[in-house]
């Protein structure tokens, strides 16, 4: 069920993402260039529609509206699509990024029935530091999700050695790139978040479970940025680490926000 107050732009974007997924799957089976092109066109269209919707909400609210579950799902979905386009445009990964689009659809499927109303902003959130903090947080998460997707494909390709998927060296390279970029962006998220916490509460590290897990995400991926230089961890080991890392990310975003009480509630 889609909420009656939902923006038609977002519904159209969802439909376009859904259609693009189908065309990518067809391309995976039939290997027709036209199918891939159409699928790509649909993703670009969906992303453009979602971006307009985001801009509309931003303008209406006067701040980047990422303060409840609907808004975070919406923004995370937008960041995932942006990340997918980055890899698609640079590397022509085609259906190799399908997991990210699936995750995107999953997020939108969960978001669309929710009330899209923009809640009044808590005064402490009314600062550009908050905007920068959440922007880099979700874009970082999106790159970690892409790394997860590429890692799973790496493990599948290693087992199946199929022509349907990109070669192992490319998957490994892209996985490393996604981890590196995700780590850089997440570092920016923590820096801006810490400065904001200091001016808002007088300390830059909170022992709240969200704060601790954010630090754990950072330290885990910092370790991963080093692990690729250790021969034993290259390739398969690195792919498994990417899978585990995304588990930590998912718990930090959804697990803590929904299951536990924290200073970053989603409900």
């Amino acid at each position: 069920m889609i909420s009656a107050d939902q923006s038609p732009l977002l519904v159209a974007a969802f439909a376009a993402y859904l259609a693009s997924t189908l065309f990518y799957l067809l391309h995976l089976v039939l290997r027709r260039r036209l199918l891939w092109r159409f699928a790509f066109f649909l993703v670009v269209t969906a992303f453009a529609l979602q971006s307009v919707c985001l801009a509309e909400r931003w303008l209406a609210a006067g701040y980047l509206p990422v303060t409840n579950l609907f808004a975070t799902q919406f923004f995370f979905s937008w960041a995932l699509a942006a990340t997918y386009l980055y890899f698609e445009i640079r590397y022509r990964i085609h259906a190799a990024g399908l997991f990210v689009i699936f995750l995107n659809l999953l997020l939108l499927t969960s978001a669309l029935p929710r009330d899209p109303v923009i809640p009044p902003l808590i005064p402490a959130l009314d600062t550009p530091l908050f905007t920068l903090h959440i922007f880099f947080s979700f874009v970082g998460y999106a790159f970690f999700a892409m790394a997860f997707s590429l890692a799973v494909l790496y493990l599948v390709q290693r087992r199946l050695a199929t022509d349907l998927l990109p070669p192992l060296p490319l998957l490994r390279q892209l996985n490393e790139e996604a981890i590196f970029l995700g780590f850089c962006l997440f570092t920016l998220c923590l820096i801006f978040g810490s400065i904001w916490a200091y001016v808002a509460w007088g300390y830059y590290f909170s022992w709240n479970i969200k704060g601790v897990w954010s630090f754990l995400v950072w330290i885990f991926y910092a370790g991963m940025c080093h692990a690729k230089f250790v021969r034993r961890w290259q390739g398969t080991g690195y792919a498994w680490l990417s899978v585990a890392g995304f588990g930590v990310v998912l718990f930090t975003y959804l697990g803590i926000g929904l299951l536990l009480s924290s200073n970053h509630p989603l409900n």
Partner: peptide
């Protein structure tokens, strides 16, 4: 480098349980 990885992994695992 390996020491860095081991320590980062240990901090992560300890932090997960501790948190």
């Amino acid at each position: 480098l390996k020491l860095a990885i081991v320590l980062a992994a240990a901090v992560t695992l300890l932090g997960i349980g501790g948190s």
